[in-house]
Every structure is written in C-alpha cells, then in structure tokens.
Design a binder for these strands. Sequence first.
DNA 1: TTGTATGCGTTATCAA
DNA 2: TTGATAACGCATACAA
Lengths: 342, 342
Amino acid sequence: MPRVSIEDVANLAGVSITTVSRVINNKDYPVAEKTKKKVLKAVKDLNYFPDFAAQNLRNNFSNTIGLITRDISDPYFGIIARAVTERASYYGVLSIVCNTGRNPVNELQYHDLLWQHKVRGIILSGGGLDADDYRYKLQEQIKRYNDHGNRIVALAPQGLEMPYVMIDNRAAGEMITDYLIDQGHRRIAFVGGPEKIYSALERASGYKLSLNKHGLNFDAALLTHGQFSWESGYEAAKNLLRENISFSGICCANNDIAFGVLQALKEKGIDVPGQVSVISIGDLPMAAHVSPPLTTAHVPLYDMALRAVDVIMDGAKPDQNASVIFKTPIVKRQSVAKYMPK
Amino acid sequence: MPRVSIEDVANLAGVSITTVSRVINNKDYPVAEKTKKKVLKAVKDLNYFPDFAAQNLRNNFSNTIGLITRDISDPYFGIIARAVTERASYYGVLSIVCNTGRNPVNELQYHDLLWQHKVRGIILSGGGLDADDYRYKLQEQIKRYNDHGNRIVALAPQGLEMPYVMIDNRAAGEMITDYLIDQGHRRIAFVGGPEKIYSALERASGYKLSLNKHGLNFDAALLTHGQFSWESGYEAAKNLLRENISFSGICCANNDIAFGVLQALKEKGIDVPGQVSVISIGDLPMAAHVSPPLTTAHVPLYDMALRAVDVIMDGAKPDQNASVIFKTPIVKRQSVAKYMPK
DNA sequence: TTGTATGCGTTATCAA
DNA sequence: TTGATAACGCATACAA
C-alpha cells in the first residue's frame, strides 16, 4: 500500500506530472481551466499530498522551523511554544521543538539535527549562557545559517550578534525597583536568577541602577542569585527572613521566583502587601491567580514569539535588521502597597 | 556556499560515495580499517551531516515523530511534551509539536501535514472528542498509519480502536470519591471537565459509581461540567456556594479546576480542609505549591509520555498490542481532612 | 498551454 | 573490500 505520488495523480488525470505540479504550487502559471479541474479532482479522489521530503530535497529547505527551549513544561516556554506553533501553522510550516533540559551540550546537538532537517530558521527561547566554548559553537551555527539566508532568532540575550525579539531586561529590572521606590520603599531585596544567564544578570543590574539613581546604597546582603524557579525563590526568601535583614520590598527576577517568595512569606505569617511588597518580571497566567495577585512588569511573551516567527518567515534579506524590543509595562495587582513605617 | 554532501566527503577521502555511506550507517559492513579512517576524517573535516530529506525520500520515513496537543502552554501538556521530546531525542528523532487550540479542524489538518512529513508515529495527548465527523476522519488517519506499519498512540481515551498509554479515568474518579467518603464525607460535589471529552465523562462516571457503591444518592446539583481550567473551577465553586447547597467535600476533575476551586473557597473565607475538603485528579508541580497543598490522584504523565514514544519507536508489529494502563495512587497532602459535623 | 528530461542527496542492488 | 548506478518524488529549464 504505497503512498500516492504525483505520478499517480498525473495518470488518473491523464496529464503530465509537470502539469500536476503546476496546478498545485504554481498558482498563477497558466493552465487550462478544464485541465486544472481534472487535476484537482484526481488529487482529491486519491487523497494526494506532496511528499515533503522530495520537495525538501529539490527546494533545499523544509517546511519546518526549530524552537529551542530549556524546559517546555515550564509555562514560560509553553507560552512561547504555543505562539510559535500557531504562527508557524499560519505560514504552513511545522514546528520542531527541542528541549535542552538546561544542558548546553544537548543544545549544540539539536543545532546539528535541525541543520540536517533544513529548518527555515531557529528560535532560541532561553537566555544565553555565559560560557566561552558554548558561545563559540553557537556562533558557528549562526554563521552557517546566515550563509544560507536563514536565521537564528533570539528571544533573550545570547551575548552574540544575531536578530532578536526581546525585552530590555535591564530596564525591566530598573522599572520594578523604581516602582517599589516610588511607593516609598527603601530597603528592597532582589531575588535573582542564575549568574550564568545574561538576562538574569541584566535584570539584577537594572536593580542596582535604580538604587543608584535614587541615591540608595546597595546592600549585597539584599541581592541573591539562584535559579529561575519556585524552589529558588522560596529558599531565598527563607534565608532573607532567617538572617533577620530588614526590608519592606522584594523584587523577583521572574514569576516562579515570586511564587516561591510569596509562599515563604505566607508560611512566616508575613502579610503581603501589608508588611512586605512583592513585585516581579514576567506575567504568566498564574500571576493573576496567586494570592495576593502579583504585580509585575508584563513581558508579552506570546506576541514576542509570534514576531520571532515573522522574522524567520518574512525575513527578506539576512543583512536587514529585523530586531525588536518590546515594552514591559507594569501591571498593578495586589502584591505591592505603599511603604508604612512600623 | 552549498551544503556539503556525501559526494564532497567521497572526493576528499578519495573513495566512492557508496563507501562513505557504508562507514556512516552500515556499522558492520566490512570496510578496510584504513579506508574507514580516511572517510571519518573527511566527514569531520568537512563537518558533514547527511541530508535528512534525501534519506527520508529514499527510506520512506523521516526522523521525526508528531505530538498533538490541545494547549502546549498548559503544564499538563507541557510535561507530556518534555517527556516526548526527551525520549525522542534518545532515539535520535526530533519531535514536531502541533497545537490545536482545542479546534478539531486544526487537528485534522495537522494529521495531513504530519503524514506529508512521514513521521514515525503520532502521539495524541488530548482527550478525544465525542463528535462523529471528527471521529470518522481520525479513524481514517489511524488506518492510513496502520497500513504503513506506523502508529498513532493515545494518551487519553479517543473512543477509537488504537494503541494507548492511559490511566483508568473512571477508576480515578471513583478513587478520589472513595477517599473522601472514607474520610467520613457524605455530601460531595464533583466539578467536572467538558461534556464532550471522553476522559472528563469517565471521571464523572467514576464519581457516580463510588456514590452508588456506598449507598449515597446522587444529587444532580452537586455535579457540574465545564472546562478543564482554573476559571471553570472558580466559577463552579462560586455557584455551588451561591446556591447554598450543603457539601463538605469537592472532587475536581483536574488540577486547574482544583486551583480555581481553592481560590473561590478562600475568597469566601471557607477554610480548606477545616470546613471543606478538596481533592483532584492529576499531579502537576503546582499541586504541591498551592495552599493548602493539594491531595490528588497522581497521574504519572511524564512516564506515560515516555512510554508512548517507546510504543512508537519499538513498535515491532502493528498488530501486537503495546497498550498500558498506569496506576493513579492518591498522594496525600493537606487539602483533605476527616469530616467534622458542625 | 502542455510535456520531456534533469538533478537534488541518499541507500541498496549488483557487479567487480 | 570497493564502486557504478538505479530509484525515491518532486520542481523546473527547456522544448514543443
């Protein structure tokens, strides 16, 4: 029971395969109306679909794009994946999702695999790693794609020259800190992400910038680094509390961290925002569902990912800069209050 | 700057393309050690990777599997996707993720696209729809794959004959209801999923089964159907409360529903589990992070999805039944307490 | 307006 | 142990 090929269609319609090919793809190539009808009927009767592999071989590119993700079960990446798959679908291409599990070696392997598949482009959704050998290899991939008129697009800083669709991570860190300061807070902690990830670093540096700008001095005890995770936020808050450091506000580098922080505070009987205000960067659906609902700098992940696909698919000339920076407006919910001296 | 092909390798190594092909794939075909060395060196020097499209065309199958998902941004599907991509990677194949957005028409289109890609198999992660035309088309796809020795595997009931890796949804519904009854509860509500989805239906019927088994009579006011979502759970609980129906326990058809229920209860100042016990089916990471931590029937999604990939990749004879049912043990956390009459 | 023939990069068959 | 060649399904240059 072999697949039906273009030849089968041609035979049934009583025309050449060339003609079949033309009515199918070459939408405006002149073909007699009557012939076209016959072909279309044959296509339908046989339930014919062109073989992508043959097209790929001939055209030298496939109907796929690649998405590289650190952990697809994390809604952060999930939202990106949803946008990518949906937008890809609009362009008639399929999405190959690669999950690196935070292992750079996997990521590099995936790059080779995607290359073999001749994907139209790759979206890098995780923040880049600050590691030389990794960066070097990635740089090679980018070049390879560039040479073929394809693109690797970054959704977070990679420390490399490439098209991107991002937020300004430093500005976001600065913005949430500014906001707490505007509300009167002076002793503000920052619970950060991994020290090896560019975006985490930038968010933290925005925090320092804001402090500095407002003439507040930086207290190293108030800045911690860890993972972009619930557990990490939970631990950080516990430590802050244990050390008995005074503070009235906490900036969290992402939502998961904030969720963990909230839980730690709750367990210690500390009221949010009554005693401590909490703010974070990101705006996952859960942010509106925790209690209290979280005030955040909104990161329009979905729209960003949509755009990233556009950069790949519309991407006329590889030299043309298609990069964008999205804004991160503060969404006010209920986890921040004005500072009340005890 | 064309891609490097097997011919380039052959030229550099000074051998024929046949030989190159042999050292690469045909691991145990006899090739002189010296020749092998030369070839391997050329492969490395040129950074050669076989063209998957050409292999696909020749072999008549690709190095990919398909995953069909309702909403990849939902951690439920995210966990499945992580397992699938990771396990696929182990087999050296890539995963094509398709997001239907709960639209059956999309799903059917994706089936055609995946067919064109000659995927090795497809995993259906969402519960099947109780709609005749949809089922009919899906049945056709299954047959088409069967004829080619490939497989479409279901991770939830589809109402069709096909290999599956599932839990017993009815038993899970029964189990959580049993558990509440064991704790002394008599008036138990069930907040269900969509009425068109098989798994939702089965879970609800397990609830009735349990009631019946224990000689409790079924009160239609206590059973609701909606979506598998936070909002749906939230609304359902609000309604239950508004109608002033008495109950001391709530069974939720999935985690998201339970999270919404918990929030509605909290807003009404109802203590969980002091006044009302809540239990659900599913065990997303968040279940341990809400307050109170949720008692659930654990659904081993990750392992199930791993297994689904195995069914596709190891799937010797298509006629051989590779299906499995996973157990759903109750994970006791803090959302259920013994019934205390007021 | 239609058709013939070539080649894309592989693998497998057959011959040497 | 190695190599020449056909075939996979399609898109296109060229011919008619």
